[in-house]
């Protein structure tokens, strides 16, 4: 009993910490005016998610989460913010999808509570591990890195190859979009 508690309490603490990081960060993202601050809040959330990953034995993903999101994606955000000077000058504004904030709030609250309600009604998880069809049972500890690799190169082989296509098209697209257009201006 004590032992169980000794195990359980830290995990609750970890959860609370993760939740606090995630929610604070998320609220920061949607409320802060300055995009740089929003980006920092985003990092906070990402860290929180990483913590939640670690707490659920997805260490590798936690590391990748930090490397990919914090190390690359948010840096890219900051880059663009600084590069364009969006924080100081007027940014790239778009018409918000819903103009009434309270309306959106109500909508989102209803949707989320509906989601949570539905999940809770069906006891949160109803599936069974797809062991019979090439799925792998999750091992504990560091072994799941190996499992993850195996799974990606067997069950998700095609998906993995498809990500290559995805990344290439993204890179090509980004280059095409951001390319300078001096000549056309001169020509026109």
């Amino acid at each position: 009993m004590m032992l169980a508690l000794a195990y359980a309490v830290p995990s609750v603490i970890v959860f609370v910490a993760a939740a606090a990081l995630i929610l604070t960060g998320a609220i920061g993202v949607i409320s802060l005016k300055n995009p740089v601050h929003a980006a920092l809040s985003l990092i906070m959330t990402l860290f929180g998610v990483a913590v939640a990953f670690i707490a659920q034995q997805a260490d590798f993903l936690a590391a990748v989460q930090i490397i990919v999101y914090a190390g690359a994606i948010v840096v890219l955000f900051l880059f663009v913010i600084m590069f364009l000077g969006v924080d100081r000058r007027e940014g790239v504004d778009v018409q918000p999808l819903v103009s009434q904030k309270p309306l959106a709030l109500v909508g989102v609250v209803i949707t989320v509570s509906a989601i949570i309600f539905t999940m809770s009604r069906s006891s949160w998880v109803t599936g069974v591990p797809s062991l019979s069809l090439g799925g792998t049972r999750l091992a504990t500890g560091s072994h799941n890195v190996k499992q993850l690799g195996t799974s990606i190169f067997t069950t998700y082989l095609f998906a993995f190859e498809a990500t290559a296509a995805l990344l290439i098209i993204a890179v090509v697209g980004a280059v095409l979009l951001a390319r300078r257009e001096r000549v056309l201006e001169e020509a026109s």
């Binding site: 998700y156 998906a159 498809a162 296509a165 995805l166 098209i169 090509v172 697209g173 095409l176």
Partner: peptide
Amino acid sequence: NDLVVIFLGLEILSIGLYV
């Protein structure tokens, strides 16, 4: 035949189209 593959296909389609 896999939702993840559909998702990736969807993204390849969409990202190409955005550009």
